[in-house]
Amino acid sequence: MDFFDAFLNPEIIATYLRPMVRAVWVTIWISVLVVISGLALGALLAGLRAYQKRWLSWPIVLFADLMRALPPLVLMLILFFGLPSIGIILNDWFVLYLILTLVLAAFVEEIFWATMTSLPRGQWEAGAATGLSFLQVLVHVIFPQALRMNIPPLVNRSLTISKMTAYGSVIGVKEIVSVAGSAQAFSGSATPLTMAALAYLIIFFPAMLLSRYIEDRFHYEH
């Protein structure tokens, strides 16, 4: 059949299975790194903002606004094509990792900050009254609550940004889309593109179901 021949040709699937699997690993690997460092950086920024020092909050707010308002693809191109002209050459995968981390951190910072300002002031006071330092209250009292209340949005945002690893294809990172793209050009068949879509389904469909489950479970009762 015409359709299957174009989109699900078994011979082509067999030929490109191995490079595709390798590309899947690249995608997963970069996604995991992005999620870990994005969450950590976002939490750190929210923590710094809690000190309510103008010279600290101001740049953080600016950073969060920029990273949320600019398309990541634009940022990646600026970094990838612009930096070499001032003598800085970054790996393609590092540009992808860096931009996605910064974008995720910006969203995480905003999510945390909104919660931190909404927790009753008594939570801060109860900590202070028992002799905990500001940092200790932040780490042991405020952050765990912010994390718990925000598991659904944090999971959703992490998944959305993980899927943006597909943008790596634009700057030549050997992830799923880029490997599928060159395989398509090479084989003259659309099958590698179907494989790419299926690869994402295999990775992210369970993640979507998981996030649905989490949303139901952690729906914050208050």
């Binding site: 015409d2 359709f3 174009a6 989109f7 899927k163 943006m164 597909a166 943008y167 294809s169 799923i176 889309v177 599928a180 793209g181 398509q184 068949s189 659309a190 593109l193 179907t194 790419a196 879509a197 994402y200 389904l201 990775i203 992210f204 469909f205 993640a207 979507m208 179901l209 649905r212």
Partner: peptide, 24 residues
């Protein structure tokens, strides 16, 4: 909903733009 939230829009776009011509 879940399928199209799982597939990055970029791959959808390429599949439609570069894939459909293969079936005319």
């Amino acid at each position: 909903i879940d399928i199209f939230r799982a597939i990055p829009p970029l791959i959808l776009l390429i599949l439609i733009y570069a894939g459909l011509p293969f079936v005319g």
